[in-house]
Amino acid sequence: MEPIRLAVNGRTDIGQVRDENEDSIRCHSDPDHPFAYIVVADGMGGYSGGATASDIAADTLQGELDKLLDTPFLTCSRERQHIMLRTALVEGIGICNRKILETKKTRPQFSQMGTTLVAAAIWMDFLIVAHIGDSRAYLWNDYGLQRLTRDHSVVQEMIDAGQLTAEQAQTSQVRNHITRALGISEPVEATVNSWTLTESALLLLCSDGLTEYIDDHTIERVLATYRPALECVYHFIDDANRRGGRDNISAGIIEFCNRPEAVTEFSGDPITLQPKATHDITVRKSRR
């Protein structure tokens, strides 16, 4: 098995309209082990409530993931490591939820706060993604772009039920409504999926401030074109701001390289990818 190289980059931006950034992002790549993660939280509630909720979620989950690489983890079997990573992610999300709920009880001014969350971690060639709400994760490799998450939103449920098309969802009166979030009730249910990575790839996590303006076709084009690949986060945020920037915008990328030539591929000259037709939906949350 080729040595695995992981690198990360992330950025959050207030956008062009809002007075406060309610997004939070945490990125980490371990210098000694093939371990990396990104956490993106998109808060809601206004008047600093959303920022507080997203900070609690991002800080808490970061702390739980940072504790993972101890001696028991490093010395156990690969299968056991996968279980431990999943457990850390799921239990960490539960802790995030309880902390937000506890804060709401002690700070009545934040009674309406909550946050979406999307988190991804890679250990060696094992990728795990958990999400709540409409912040998303994507994977891009030589085969194209794959969306790894399905929005927890009213319009997505209507699309799944055949009651709405993707095009109609873009102008739906309920397109801002999410169906799951941290800080609403106990317990919280995250969607968790995992994959084994066999090809070098780019993993993108983002808040809906990005996907409000940039569809899957454009995401694929940017990830396939710009090098160094980690600088795509700046292109994404700049593009969203140029197109209106009505929401806060967050994007984080993990480079996963499992062959030597991929390091040059992701850091060197642009490559071209023939785009495929996609149908995308755009959703945003109700903030107030």
Results as ranks from 00 to 15, higher is better:
M1Q: 03
P3M: 12
I4W: 06
V8I: 14
V8M: 07
R11Q: 14
T12K: 13
D13W: 06
G15Y: 04
N21Q: 09
S24H: 00
R26G: 10
R26Y: 13
H28N: 09
S29K: 12
A36D: 09
A36F: 06
I38F: 05
V40F: 02
G46Y: 05
G50H: 01
A51H: 01
D55A: 15
D55L: 10
I56W: 05
I56A: 06
A58K: 02
D59H: 11
T60Q: 04
T60H: 08
L61N: 11
Q62Y: 07
G63S: 13
G63I: 05
G63T: 08
P72V: 09
F73H: 02
C76P: 00
R78L: 13
Q81I: 15
I83T: 13
M84T: 02
M84L: 14
T87C: 13
A88E: 07
A88G: 02
A88R: 13
I93H: 05
I93K: 00
G94A: 04
G94D: 11
C96D: 07
N97W: 00
R98V: 10
R98E: 13
L101G: 02
T103A: 01
K104M: 01
K105H: 01
T106Q: 07
R107A: 02
P108T: 09
S111I: 05
M113T: 00
M113D: 05
M113G: 05
A119V: 07
A120R: 05
I122E: 00
I122F: 09
F126M: 08
I128L: 03
A130M: 05
I132L: 12
A137C: 03
L139E: 07
W140G: 03
W140E: 03
W140S: 01
N141M: 03
Y143L: 12
G144D: 07
L145I: 06
Q146H: 10
L148Q: 01
R150L: 14
R150G: 06
H152N: 12
S153Q: 00
V155S: 06
V155K: 07
V155Q: 03
Q156S: 07
M158R: 12
A161M: 10
L164M: 15
T165W: 01
A166G: 09
A166L: 06
Q168F: 07
S172Q: 07
Q173R: 14
T179K: 04
T179S: 01
A181N: 03
A181Q: 08
L182P: 04
V188Y: 05
A190R: 04
T191N: 13
T196P: 06
L197W: 07
T198K: 10
C206K: 00
C206Y: 05
D208H: 09
L210A: 00
L210M: 03
T211K: 03
T218M: 12
I219H: 08
R221C: 09
R221M: 13
P228L: 03
A229I: 06
E231I: 02
C232H: 11
C232I: 05
H235D: 15
I237A: 01
D238M: 05
D239K: 14
D239S: 12
R242Q: 14
G244R: 02
G245Q: 03
G268L: 11
G268Q: 15
L273M: 15
Q274R: 15
P275C: 02
D280S: 12
R284Q: 14
R284I: 15
K285W: 08
S286E: 14
R287A: 13
